[in-house]
Simulated assay, not measured.
Amino acid sequence: MLINDKVREDLFHEVQGLSDENLNKKPSDQEWSIKQILEHLYLMEGGIAKTIVHQLKNGETVNASSKPIEATINREIKVDAPEFSVPSDEFATLVELKEKLAATHQKLREIDNTVDEKDLDEKGFPHPIFGNISLKQWIPFVGYHEQRHILQIKEVKEKLGI
């Protein structure tokens, strides 16, 4: 979870001091607000944690080979957000978003700290680009995914003149 913890610190640093108004402002109709990016991140992290728990109980052994999940940071490659992680247009405060991000982060940390590494290695589930990823690799994937969206937050701040 080292990468995830470090990246989460970076994420919170990037949004520190933003007003709730700026947080909810979209650079354009086709782009997400920073609030929507943060919502997407907790929906993804929570969804991945839930899927890991499900796969541990019900999943088949896939013995997935190691994937270059670090490539997730590359914003040149566009990937549509899975349905479950598409954010809403509803207004939210930074305090609310940080609480939700803390809850999903804790859930993933509990999995990382309590589950046998052998089980995390053997089981997995598919990613739209990488194919089957082991449950063990899905945990740091969340950190790389967040790094990608920190870059997006920086772009949004620049476009909004923040």
Rank of each mutant, 00 (worst) to 15 (best):
Q152G: 08
I73Y: 07
L41E: 11
L56E: 06
N22Y: 10
E45Q: 14
Q30A: 09
S19V: 06
V95H: 11
H149M: 04
A81N: 14
E110G: 00
P82K: 05
L56V: 06
V79L: 14
Q16T: 04
P140M: 07
A64V: 04
E39D: 03
K118N: 13
K35E: 10
E45Y: 09
K26R: 15
V86H: 04
E146L: 02
G143L: 06
E39C: 09
V53W: 02
V115C: 00
T61D: 10
K26S: 07
G46R: 03
E158W: 03
N24E: 03
D29E: 14
D112Y: 12
K26W: 04
F84G: 05
T114E: 13
E110A: 06
G59T: 10
S85P: 02
W32M: 05
E122Q: 13
E122T: 00
S65Q: 04
K6N: 09
S88F: 07
I139P: 03
S88I: 05
H127I: 07
E39H: 11
I111Q: 08
F125E: 04
F130V: 06
S33Q: 08
T51Y: 01
P126W: 06
K154E: 13
S19G: 10
K118M: 13
L38G: 02
G161N: 10
H105C: 00
E110D: 13
V156M: 03
